[in-house]
Design a protein around this nucleic acid. Sequence first.
DNA 1: TGTAGACTTTGACATGGTGGGAAGGTCAAC
DNA 2: GTTGACCTTCCCACCATGTCAAAGTCTACA
Lengths: 147, 147
Amino acid sequence: MMNIGKAASASGVSAKMIRYYESIGLITPAQRSDAGYRHYSADDVHVLRFIRRARDLGFSVHDIAGLLTLWRDQGRASADVKRIATAHITALQRKIDELQGMVDTLRTLAEHCHGDQRPDCPILADLDAADGGPAPGGSSCHHGGSK
Amino acid sequence: MMNIGKAASASGVSAKMIRYYESIGLITPAQRSDAGYRHYSADDVHVLRFIRRARDLGFSVHDIAGLLTLWRDQGRASADVKRIATAHITALQRKIDELQGMVDTLRTLAEHCHGDQRPDCPILADLDAADGGPAPGGSSCHHGGSK
DNA sequence: TGTAGACTTTGACATGGTGGGAAGGTCAAC
DNA sequence: GTTGACCTTCCCACCATGTCAAAGTCTACA
């Protein structure tokens, strides 16, 4: 049995996060010493490592709760685990695509920006009037404060 | 001149966010009517659209503050704009790589998970002992609650 | 036995950008 | 004059994590 600091370094989960996970019910409340110190067994640390690994793979705390339940359930169907994982993959991929879209746009804009002393800049021009709507007070650059 | 709701729909920035941007100093405080209602000009909406576009490209509010300053500065150097953009591209790419790493790992694990009624599951096995450290209380699966 | 230092406890507050809602004031149309 | 749509400010929530503070506890050493 070890204190929270030891459990933290052994699991890679900070003491703060261990307390947090306990507070939201992701892990069962730790045993306490007479003085109120939390005590952790090697098995507890094992659970924390599981959580840490799942977090590293980007699973939300909500997902991890599901994975932990399945992990502990000897009669689980691997299909249930796979379902959580594939849903997560899909979400991650969607996020990646979104970010990639931003990068693509920005790269294109940056490529066409000469990046020197001159003020002319396609990046700002894009931000200025990307929607093609009316650009009141001057078309692309030159905005000396609208108020 | 229009009220905040109109400015919101015209710019694509919610009224809530317009007030927030004002509160953090990203935009200058709006003019007020006698009753205290905020009033926005077409130019103000233009600024809001600029912000909206930059947010869509994933720029942080901090970055946008810099971009707005440059936008308004007729004597700016395009190099300054490009610097912000390329730094942002780098950050985005780092995030993408991180997420892609997660996806790659998860895809590999999911591929090897038969996903049927059987409990055996490489995804859980990975989470269980990914660090290769001591797995106290039983190696891979079978954890009927550690407490 | 005392004490120093490392540890633990709870609690509050911050992050970032957004949404929701409550309680109350204003405006426009009818 | 009333109704309904709008506006105001203020507070709370998210998600996962960090920081800091005040106070209590344990351990090792003199």
